[in-house]
């Protein structure tokens, strides 16, 4: 064995030493890792169960949301039925009031005729009696006028009630808007459910087969941005766009007639949201 070989052996021993030193350092970490994995297994099992349960509960949540939509639609229909009933009764009351007002006015005119007849027949001979009857008729006229005024006031109240009923009808549009919002949430739930199902499938968790069996609920078409906003801001914005489009149409129709009013391609693209 020469010096060169001994040097090689020493190098190998040094490498082994370094390996042992590294091992000494790594072993506590490996032990820690072992305990960590040991502890984490039940947690992972719990997560698996939780994922499975969540995925299973989602169709139920989705179906319950659909039931909310159905219930609100039924309730809204009932409210609309009642509103129709109220409006039809109001129309009937309105025509009764009109008839009553006409009758009161006719009564007033008849009284005037009776008074004229009494004056013509008894005027000269029974002045005191005629004056008394005139006083009574005047008082009656005042009462008739008061009744007509009351009827007019009631008619105005009916008008207000009708306006409120129409306002309720406008508010009931909230049913359509909330049902679209619910449909949007249902869509999200379905997406999460799909993700969870694929996760369960990927990790071959127990219950993966059951997830496939879960029936998917049919959802209505929806606008994810549907909001109940009665400020009229959205309508104004739509009106502005339409106004702009119409003026553009006028310009386009004018091509060849008024060269200064021509719409450029840029303007047309801007109108239809193309280009920059």
């Amino acid at each position: 064995m020469n010096t060169k070989n001994l040097g090689g052996i020493l190098d190998k021993i040094n490498e082994l030493r370094a390996l042992f030193i590294f091992g000494q350092r790594v072993i506590p970490f490996l032990e820690e890792l072992f305990y960590f994995v040991h502890d984490i297994v039940p947690v992972l099992e719990e997560i698996n169960v939780s994922i499975y349960e969540s995925a299973n509960k989602m169709p139920r949540a989705s179906s319950q949301l659909n039931k909310v939509t159905e219930a609100t639609e039924v309730a809204t229909t009932e409210i609309l039925d009642n509103l129709d009933g109220v409006l039809s009764k109001l129309n009937a009351i309105d025509s009764h009031f009109q008839a009553a007002t006409d009758n009161l006015e006719a009564l007033g005119k008849l009284d005037e005729k009776v008074l004229t007849l009494i004056r013509e027949s008894l005027g000269e001979s029974h002045t005191a009696l005629v004056d008394e009857i005139t006083g009574i008729f005047k008082l009656k006229q005042l009462h008739l006028k008061a009744l007509v005024a009351t009827a007019g006031g009631l008619e105005n109240s009916i008008k207000d009630i009708r306006a409120k009923a129409n306002d309720i009808m406008i508010s009931l549009q909230v049913q359509d808007i909330t049902s679209q919002q619910i449909a949007s949430v249902n869509h999200l739930i379905e997406s999460v459910q799909d993700r969870l199902a694929s996760l369960i499938d990927r990790f071959k968790l127990s219950g993966a087969e059951l997830i496939d069996e879960i029936e998917k609920v049919e959802h209505r078409s929806f606008d994810p941005h549907a909001t109940y906003d009665r400020s009229g801001a959205k309508q104004k914005s739509a009106d502005d766009i339409i106004k702009e489009a119409n003026s553009m149409k006028v310009k386009l129709n004018g091509i060849g007639e008024e060269t200064e009013n021509h719409a450029s391609q840029d303007e047309i693209d801007k109108l239809f949201g193309k280009g920059a």
Partner: peptide, 25 residues
């Protein structure tokens, strides 16, 4: 419709609707 975004109105106009009402109306 409930759709009140500018792009929606544009798309509807391109499809040649005559006018546009945003719910609630």
């Amino acid at each position: 419709t409930t759709r009140g975004m500018k792009e929606d109105v544009m798309e509807a106009l391109q499809a040649r609707v005559n006018n546009y009402v945003v719910k609630p109306f």
